[in-house]
Amino acid sequence: MLNVIKVMLMTVIAFIVLLPVSWMVLSSFRLEEEIFKFTELGYHLLIPENWTLQNYRDIFSENQRPLDRYMLNTLFIAVTGTFLGLLVNSFAAFSFAKMRFPLKRSLFVIFLSTLAIPFEAIMVPQYMIIRDFGWLDTYTALIVPQIVWAFGIFLLVQFFSDIPRSLIEAARIDGASWLTIFFRVAVPMSWPAIITLGIITFVGKWDEFLWALIVISDDAKQVIQIAIASYSLETYTSWGMVFAASTIASIPTMIIFLLLQKYYIQGVTTSGIK
C-alpha cells in the first residue's frame, strides 16, 4: 500500500515535469493560429489538431535570419570554447597537482578565490575590456574570457592528485616528457572529470544568453538562445517558431546528457562529496 502511494507520487511529479516540455515540443507542430485555439481542458490542449512542419520550415527559411546560421555560430563557439577550456584548465590543474614551483599555494588560492566572484559581478568591466580590445561582435569575445573556470580546475586537481607519484616518476625515468605524461597518464585516468567539465562547458556555451546579449549586436554573429528570444518582439511573438527553435536547440544537449550521463554523474558526485 505504501509502495503504491510512493509510485503514484513519483508518477504525478513525473507528469508535472514532463507536461510543459511536451507542450513545447507538440506545439511546435501546430500552426500559429492553432496554438492558442484550445483553451478548454481536453485532448487537443496537448495534442495538435493538424500536425504541420510549417514552423520548422519557417525558422530555417527566414531570409534574414535562418536558424541554421545561429546553430552553426553557437556550435563553433561551444566546440572551440569547450576544447580550449579543457586544454587550458587541465594543464593548469596538472601543474597544481603534480609539479613543484614557487608561489604554487598562493596561486592556487588566487584561482580558487575567483570562485566567489560571479561573472555577473564583473560583467561591466569585462565588457569594457572586450570593447577596448576591439573584440565586440567577435566570437573571441564569447570564447576567451570564460575559458578559465576555477571549479573545473579544482575538480581536475582532485582527480590528478589521485595519480600515484611513483607512476609519474617511473615515466620520468623512462624519459617521458611532462606533455607525454599528461596525455598518456593523467588524462586517461581522469576521464569522468574531463567529460563532466566538457559537458558543463558545452551546455553552458550552448545555452549562453546574457553575455551574448552584451557583446554581440551583429545579427549575423548571434547565438541560438538570442535567436530564439528574437522570435518574440514587444508587439508580437511567433510562438510556433519559438517552440520549434526551442525544440531543436534542446536536442544537442539532450543527446550529450543521454550519451555521457554515466561519466557525468560520476564526475559531479566526486566533486560534490570530496
Partner: peptide, 11 residues
C-alpha cells in the same frame, strides 16, 4: 535541466 532557460521561459 537539458532545456535552456530561454526555452523554459517561453514555455
Amino acid at each position: 535541466t537539458v532545456v535552456s532557460m530561454v526555452a523554459v521561459s517561453f514555455v
